[in-house]
Design a protein around this nucleic acid. Structure first.
Length: 806
RNA sequence: GCCGGAGUGGUGAAACUGGCAGACGCGCGGGACUCAAAAUCCCGUGGGAGCAAUCCCGUGGGGGUUCGACCCCCCCCUCCGGCACCA
C-alpha cells in the first residue's frame, strides 16, 4: 500500500468508528479490484502468472491494512478476480445483452500498441494511453459496447440532484457528457445523389454559410471529389491522417477544395466543399457547415483561402463589415442578411429556423453528446471472460446462465503481445449451446471498470450464490452513504457506476437511482522530489545530506508533487508504522490537512503527532493513581473557578469534535481541539486531592480517550482499559456534551471604535444592548478613543462584540 | 480558448453565518531538569517603532459595498486541476 491508501482508509475508518460509537449499524467493507492490465504487465515482467502475482499482493496488502487497525468487516471481503465474483459480472453482461444494452459493432477504436489492447475513450488522455503513455492509434475492430449513451440524459439530469457530491466532480461529469442542443441539417450536393449531413449548435447562422468542410476520414470525400482534384485531395487526406492526433490540435488550419459544391437548403446558394484538418470524424457527423463570420475556426480558414465572409448576426450597437473584421463575432445579436428573420434576436430566430428546416424536410432539432458508448472488449488475458459464443449457424449466442461462470483458464501463454491470449487456448473451442455444432468462444475479456461498476452492491451479500446480490438487503443498505476516493475517478469509475446502477434498476435488480449518496474526494499525498544532475531522481535513501550518495553532486530539491515511483518521492507506510506505530501514522495523515486538500508529507509533522500521543499517554498514566477508582463528574452545581472552566472546555471540545467529524469531516480541527484540551489538562491548577477534583479530571480524561479513539484506536483502547473500564472502547457510546456545562456566565466583549479593536470588557453573558452600552461607554480605554466625540452609532453583536462609530 | 478551485507567518494550516486574523502542529529562541546528552516540562515567537504602556502596518494586487471584509461585488496577477479545433 502507499500513503494515498493510508489516508483514504484512515478517513473511512474514523467515520466508521465514529458512527459505530454513535449507535449506527455500519457496513465497512474492503475488497480487491484485482483484474487488469497493470497486474498482468507486472506479472509478465516478473515471469510469474498474473493470478499468483495478484494473490500475493492481496495477501500482502491485507496484512498491511490490518496493521493499520482498520475496522473492516473482513467476512465481506471480495476479489473481482475470483470466479465467485466475476460469475456475476458475466451474469449482468448477459442481462445487458438481453436488453440490448450490450451490443457488438465494428468500429474505429482506440488501440494502444504498447499494451496491445483497445482502450475506452475515458482511458485516453491527450491522445496517449493512460497507463503507458504510448500514442494511441485508431483501429477498426469488432467490439462489445455498453449503451451508456442511452442514459446520457438521465446521467446529466442527476448531476443536479446529488447535493452530497462535490460540485467539481459534477461539473467534470457534465463536461464529459457534453450535451449540445442544435440541429441536423442536410445539404444536397450539386450534380450528385449524395447529401451531406451536418450537426450545428448555431442554426441561426445558416444564412451565413459560405463553405462546407469535411473531416479527412469522411466517407464522402472519395465519392464527391471531382476527378481533376482527386489526386490533390487524396494527398492531403493521407498527409493529415499521418499526423498524430495530439499534433493536429496545434496545427494551423488548412484544407483542400474537393471540386464539389453543395446547396444551402434555405438560400439555395451553392458553396464549395472542402476537406479540413480541424474537422473531427468522431464528433457530430464529421461534417461542418462553415460560417466564417460567426465561428472562430471557420473565420481563420476563410481568411487563409480567401473565402467570402457573410455577416448574419450584428451586435446591437452597430452593423459589422466583413472586410474590417479581425475575428469572428460569436456573441448573440440581431439577425441580418437572413431574409424574413432580419431584425429578430438570433436566439428567437434559432427555433423558428429549425422549424422551417423540419417543414422543408432538410433537417431537425437534435441533441449531440460528447459521450460515446463504452467499449468494454480488451484483447488481454487478466480479466473477466465475455460469456458469448460465436456459431456459424446461430451467430452471436449467449452462454446459458446455468453454465456460468466462464472460468478464465490458468494454463495460457501470456506474452502481452499480439492478439488475445485466450484465442490460442483450448478454451476457445466450444460446442454451440443451441445447435451443438463446433463453435468459438469470445476470447476478449472485459474492461476492469466493469468489475468495479457494481462491486459495492456485492458487499451487501458477498456470499450469495444464486444471484449477484440480495435485492432486499440492497434496498436496506444502498445507496452507499459515504464514498471516499480520489478525484481521478471523477469521470471513469464514478460515471460507469452511475450508469450500471440505472441500467440494473431498469432490469429490475435494484430500486435506487444513484449508487453513492455522499462523495468525499480526498486530495493526493505529495512530497518534494530530489534530483541529481547526474543520476536523475533520487529517493531519500540515495541522498546523503544534500549530496547525491552516488556521485556527491549537489542535489536539487524539486516541487512538492504527488508521490510517484518514477519520481522516487514516495514514502513507505510500513517503515513509518514500524517506527512510529499505526496510530501516529493515521493521526498524522488526518491532522496535517483537511481531507479534500492535498497533503504535504513532512516527517517533522509525523514526529509532532507522535509527541502528542505520548503526551496523552503520560497524562493518563501519570495520574492513574488519583483517578482509577473514581467516577467521572456528571455535572455538579457546586463547581467553580478552574474546575468549572475545565469542565466547560471538556464539553465544548466534545461538541466541537463531534461536529467536525459528523458534518464537516475536518479531522484536522477536531484533532487540534483535542490537543487544546490536553494542553489545558497539563496546566492543571490546584491539586488532585478532593473527590471533586479527581472526578472532574477523570471526566476530562475519559473524554480525551473517547474523542481520540477513532483516530488512534490502539493506544486509546489500552488507556481505556488502564482506567479500569470494563467495556471495549470501540463498543462504548460516543460521549454527548452537557449543554449546561458549555454555557459561560461571563463573556469578554470586543470593543471596536470605528471598526478597530480598542478595548475588551467583561460582561455577564446575555446582557442587553442598553446595559452593554452604558458599561462600555464608561470603559476607560474606550473613552480614550471616544472621548469628546459624539457617538453616531452603537452596534452590538450579543456576547461577542460592540462597534462604536464616532 | 472554455469551465472549476486556490493564493493567509519561516512552515503545514485555523478563523464554520461578514464580527479579536494566524487556533493547533512544525520550526526557531529562551529557561527548567541532567555530570552531560536524549527525552520531557515551562515561557516566547506575523512585520515595524518604543525601556515600556502602547501605536502603526498586515490575508496575491487595485477598486467597491459595509459600522465592520481572509469572507460579498468588480477588475487584474500568479499557481493548480479538468475539458478542448466539440461545429
Amino acid at each position: 500500500i502507499h500513503m494515498g491508501h493510508v489516508r483514504n482508509y484512515s478517513i473511512g475508518d474514523v467515520i466508521a468508528r465514529f458512527l459505530k460509537m454513535r449507535g449506527k449499524n455500519v457496513l465497512h467493507p474492503m475488497g480487491w479490484d484485482a483484474f487488469g492490465l497493470p497486474a498482468e504487465n507486472a506479472a509478465i515482467q516478473r515471469g510469474i502468472h498474473p493470478s499468483e502475482w495478484t494473490r500475493k499482493n492481496i495477501a500482502n496488502m491485507r496484512v498491511q491494512l490490518k496493521r493499520l487497525g482498520l475496522s473492516y468487516d473482513w467476512t465481506r471481503e471480495v476479489a473481482t478476480c475470483s470466479p465467485e465474483y466475476y460469475r456475476w459480472n458475466q451474469w449482468v453482461f448477459l442481462k445487458f445483452f438481453e436488453k440490448g444494452l450490450a451490443y457488438r459493432k465494428l468500429s474505429n477504436v482506440n488501440w494502444c500498441p504498447e499494451c496491445a489492447t483497445v482502450l475506452a475513450n475515458e482511458q485516453v488522455e491527450n491522445g496517449v494511453c493512460w497507463r503507458c503513455d504510448s500514442i494511441v492509434e485508431s483501429k477498426e475492430l469488432e467490439q462489445w459496447f455498453f449503451r451508456i449513451t442511452d442514459y446520457a440524459e438521465e446521467l446529466l439530469e442527476w448531476t443536479h440532484k446529488l447535493p452530497g457530491w462535490p460540485e467539481k466532480v459534477l461539473i467534470m461529469q457534465r463536461n464529459w457528457l457534453g450535451k449540445s442542443v442544435g440541429a441536423e441539417v442536410i445539404f444536397n450536393i450539386v450534380d450528385s445523389i449524395e447529401t451531406i449531413k451536418i450537426f450545428t449548435t448555431r442554426p441561426d447562422t445558416l444564412y451565413g454559410v459560405t463553405f462546407m468542410s469535411l473531416a479527412p476520414e469522411h466517407p464522402l470525400v472519395e465519392k464527391i471529389a471531382s476527378p481533376g482534384r482527386l489526386k490533390e485531395v487524396r494527398e492531403f487526406v493521407a498527409r493529415i491522417k499521418a499526423v498524430d492526433k495530439r499534433k493536429r490540435e496545434e496545427a494551423e488550419k488548412e484544407g483542400v477544395f474537393t471540386g464539389a459544391f453543395c446547396v444551402n437548403p434555405l438560400t439555395g446558394d451553392k458553396v464549395p466543399v472542402y476537406v479540413a484538418n480541424f474537422v473531427l470524424m468522431e464528433y457530430g457527423t464529421g461534417a461542418v457547415m462553415a460560417v466564417p463570420a460567426h465561428d472562430k475556426r471557420d473565420f481563420e480558414f476563410a481568411k487563409k483561402y480567401s473565402i467570402p465572409i457573410r455577416v448574419v448576426i450584428n451586435p446591437i450597437e452597430k452593423a459589422l463589415n466583413p472586410d474590417d473584421m479581425k475575428e469572428a463575432y460569436i456573441e448573440d445579436g440581431v439577425m441580418a442578411g437572413s431574409s424574413e428573420w432580419n431584425g429578430m434576436k438570433n436566439t428567437d430566430a434559432f427555433p423558428k429556423i429549425v422549424e422551417l428546416l423540419e417543414k422543408k424536410g432538410f433537417g431537425k432539432r437534435t441533441v449531440n453528446w460528447r459521450l460515446r458508448d463504452w467499449g468494454i472488449s480488451r484483447q488481454r488475458y487478466w480479466g473477466c471472460p465475455i460469456p458469448i459464443i460465436y456459431c456459424d449457424c446461430c451467430g452471436i449466442t449467449p452462454v446459458p446462465y446455468e453454465q456460468l461462470p466462464v472460468v478464465l483458464p490458468e494454463d495460457v501463454l501470456i506474452t502481452g503481445k499480439g492478439t488475445s491470449p485466450l484465442a490460442d487456448a483450448s478454451f476457445a473451442n466450444v460446442e454451440c449451446p443451441k445447435c451443438r455444432k463446433p463453435a468459438r468462444r469470445e476470447t476478449d475479456t472485459m474492461d476492469t471498470f466493469v468489475d468495479s461498476s457494481w462491486y459495492f452492491l456485492r458487499y451487501v451479500t458477498p456470499h450469495e450464490t444464486s444471484k449477484p446480490f440480495g435485492k432486499d438487503e440492497v434496498s436496506r443498505w444502498m445507496p452507499v452513504d459515504r464514498y471516499i476516493g480520489g478525484i481521478e475517478h471523477a469521470v471513469l469509475h464514478l460515471l460507469y457506476s452511475r450508469f450500471f446502477t440505472k441500467a440494473m434498476r431498469d432490469i429490475g435488480l435494484l430500486s435506487i437511482d444513484e449508487p453513492f449518496k455522499n462523495l468525499l474526494t480526498q486530495g493526493m499525498v505529495c512530497k518534494a522530489f530530489m534530483k541529481c544532475p547526474e543520476h536523475g531522481y533520487l529517493s531519500e535513501e540515495e541522498v546523503n545530506g544534500e549530496k547525491c550518495g552516488e556521485c556527491g553532486k549537489e542535489v536539487t530539491i524539486g516541487a512538492v508533487e504527488k508521490m510517484s515511483k518514477s519520481k522516487k518521492n514516495t514514502v513507505d507506510p510500513d517503515g513509518i508504522i514500524l517506527r512510529y506505530g499505526a496510530d501516529t501514522t493515521r493521526l498524522f495523515s488526518l491532522f496535517a490537512a483537511p481531507p479534500e486538500r492535498d497533503l504535504d508529507w513532512n516527517i517533522d509533522g509525523v514526529e509532532g503527532s507522535y509527541r502528542f500521543l505520548g503526551r496523552v499517554w503520560r497524562l493518563v498514566n501519570e495520574n492513574l493513581d488519583f483517578i482509577k477508582d473514581v467516577k467521572p463528574c456528571g455535572g455538579d452545581p457546586g463547581l467553580t473557578g478552574f474546575l468549572k472552566d475545565v469542565r466547560r472546555m471538556t464539553h465544548s471540545t466534545i461538541k466541537k469534535v463531534t461536529g467536525d467529524i459528523e458534518t464537516r469531516f475536518h479531522f484536522n480541527t477536531a484533532i487540534s481541539s483535542i490537543m487544546e484540551l490536553v494542553n489545558r489538562l497539563y496546566q492543571w491548577e490546584g491539586g488532585m486531592n478532593t473527590d471533586l477534583e479527581k472526578r472532574v479530571f477523570r471526566e476530562s480524561i475519559e473524554a480525551v480517550v473517547l474523542l481520540l479513539s477513532p483516530f488512534a484506536p490502539h493506544m486509546t483502547e489500552e488507556l481505556w482499559e488502564s482506567l479500569g473500564n470494563k467495556s471495549r472502547l470501540y463498543e462504548t457510546p460516543w460521549p454527548g456534551f452537557d449543554p449546561e456545562a458549555v454555557l459561560t456566565d461571563e463573556v469578554t466583549l470586543i470593543v471596536q471604535v470605528n471598526g478597530k479593536v480598542r478595548s475588551k470588557v467583561s460582561m455577564p453573558a446575555g446582557s442587553g444592548k442598553d446595559e452593554v452600552e452604558a458599561m462600555v461607554l464608561k470603559d476607560e480605554k474606550t473613552m480614550e478613543w471616544t472621548g469628546g466625540k459624539g457617538v453616531k452609532k452603537f452596534i452590538y453583536v450579543p456576547d461577542k462584540l460592540v462597534n462604536i462609530v464616532v
